[in-house]
Amino acid sequence: MSTPGPNDPLPVKARQDAQDWAQHMTEYMAQTAGAALDAGSAEPVFSNCVGKHDEVREDGRYKLSYAVYSSAPLEQHPEAVRKVRAMLEQQGFKIDGYRETIDGKVNTVLDASQESSQYLVTVETTKGGLLLFLVKTPCLMPPTTAETPH
């Protein structure tokens, strides 16, 4: 699969479908990690797509950032992140960043991307000692807007 070009049409996905996929992906990562998610902590944030020169089109295009937390014990974070890393690599994600500790203390970070879809995922230890599962979409076009002539 090739990387989408700057002039390629945006992928078409309804906001609810994007949120459902992100929720499923965070649940799958957490299950792989052996961590229980705090469903009440889910934070879907939709935002406008901003162009190279800070331009914003008023045609419905959007990005989604979907975050959810787990209160898995800190000492379990490195093994959890290792498991998620292995799963993502099997699914064709590129590992963009990885660490387990800083100065001997647990401080995990796993950043991965999928070239074909341009989705980004992160699993990391947060300041409060929680384990964060995060999915970010590229700029997407809702179906109703995509069907109208340009």
Rank of each mutant, 00 (worst) to 15 (best):
5 G>P: 00
6 P>A: 14
7 N>R: 01
8 D>T: 11
9 P>Q: 03
10 L>R: 10
13 K>I: 06
13 K>N: 03
14 A>F: 06
16 Q>I: 04
17 D>W: 07
18 A>M: 09
22 A>D: 15
23 Q>E: 15
24 H>K: 07
25 M>G: 00
27 E>Q: 15
27 E>V: 08
29 M>K: 13
31 Q>V: 00
32 T>D: 15
32 T>R: 12
34 G>S: 08
36 A>W: 02
39 A>G: 07
41 S>C: 08
42 A>Q: 07
45 V>C: 04
45 V>Q: 10
46 F>L: 01
48 N>K: 03
48 N>D: 11
51 G>M: 05
52 K>P: 05
52 K>R: 13
53 H>A: 15
64 L>Q: 12
65 S>E: 02
66 Y>D: 06
67 A>H: 02
70 S>R: 10
70 S>P: 11
75 E>C: 03
77 H>K: 14
78 P>T: 13
78 P>L: 08
80 A>H: 01
83 K>D: 03
84 V>R: 08
93 F>P: 00
94 K>F: 05
95 I>F: 09
95 I>W: 04
96 D>T: 04
97 G>N: 10
99 R>Y: 13
100 E>F: 08
110 L>Q: 06
111 D>V: 05
113 S>G: 04
115 E>M: 02
115 E>I: 08
115 E>R: 05
118 Q>V: 03
118 Q>I: 02
126 T>N: 14
127 K>P: 03
130 L>N: 12
133 F>A: 00
137 T>H: 02
138 P>Q: 06
139 C>E: 05
141 M>V: 06
142 P>N: 07
143 P>I: 02
145 T>S: 15
